[in-house]
Simulated scan of single mutants.
Amino acid sequence: MHAMEISRTGLEVEWRRLEVISENLANAGTVRTAGGGAYQPRHLISGPRGEFSAYLDRSHASATAQDERLDGVMVYAIEPDATPPRRAHEPDNPQADADGFVTYPAINHAEQMVLMAKTARVYEANIVAMNTARQMYAKALELGMRG
Rank of each mutant, 00 (worst) to 15 (best):
S53D: 10
A38C: 02
E79W: 08
S22N: 11
A28E: 10
D67K: 15
M74G: 12
S22R: 05
E14Y: 12
A26K: 03
Y76P: 11
T64M: 12
G47N: 09
G50A: 09
Y39C: 03
S53C: 03
E23Y: 02
A26Y: 06
A82L: 13
R32Q: 11
A28F: 06
L70C: 06
A88V: 15
Y55W: 11
T30E: 04
T64Q: 15
Y39A: 03
S62M: 04
Q40M: 08
G37A: 07
L18T: 00
Y39H: 02
L44A: 09
A54R: 14
A28M: 13
R16F: 01
H43A: 09
S59H: 07
G50V: 00
V31N: 07
Y39V: 02
A26W: 04
G47T: 08
N27G: 05
P80T: 11
M74S: 14
G29Y: 08
P41T: 07
E14D: 13
N24I: 05
H89D: 03
L56K: 01
I45M: 10
I45E: 13
I45S: 11
R42A: 10
V75F: 04
A88G: 05
G47P: 12
F52N: 14
V31S: 06
G50Q: 03
F52W: 14
N27S: 06
A28T: 09
H89C: 01
A38F: 00
N24F: 04
D67M: 14
G47Q: 08
I21V: 07
M74T: 14
E23S: 15
R86Q: 10
Y39F: 08
R32C: 02
R42H: 08
R16L: 05
S59G: 01
V20Q: 06
E68V: 10
Y55T: 10
R17I: 00
G50M: 02
E14G: 06
S46H: 11
A65Y: 08
I21D: 06
P48R: 09
P91Q: 02
A63K: 15
Y39E: 05
E51R: 15
R87Q: 13
G72R: 02
F52P: 12
R42C: 03
R69D: 08
A26S: 14
R58I: 11
E68H: 12
G72A: 01
P84A: 09
T30A: 03
E51S: 12
H60T: 15
A65V: 12
A65H: 10
V75Q: 06
L44T: 11
L70G: 06
L70Q: 13
S62G: 14
G50R: 03
G36F: 00
A82H: 14
R32W: 02
R58Q: 12
S22V: 03
P84W: 03
R32Y: 03
A61G: 10
R16E: 09
P91E: 01
L44N: 08
V13G: 00
E23N: 15
S22E: 07
L44W: 05
R42G: 06
H43M: 11
S59V: 06
W15N: 13
Y39K: 01
V73N: 04
A34D: 14
Y76E: 15
E19F: 00
A82Q: 15
N27M: 03
A88S: 14
T64D: 15
R32K: 11
A82T: 15
L44V: 11
N27T: 04
E90H: 04
F52K: 15
R58W: 01
R42S: 07
V13S: 00
P48E: 12
A77I: 09
T64H: 13
D57I: 00
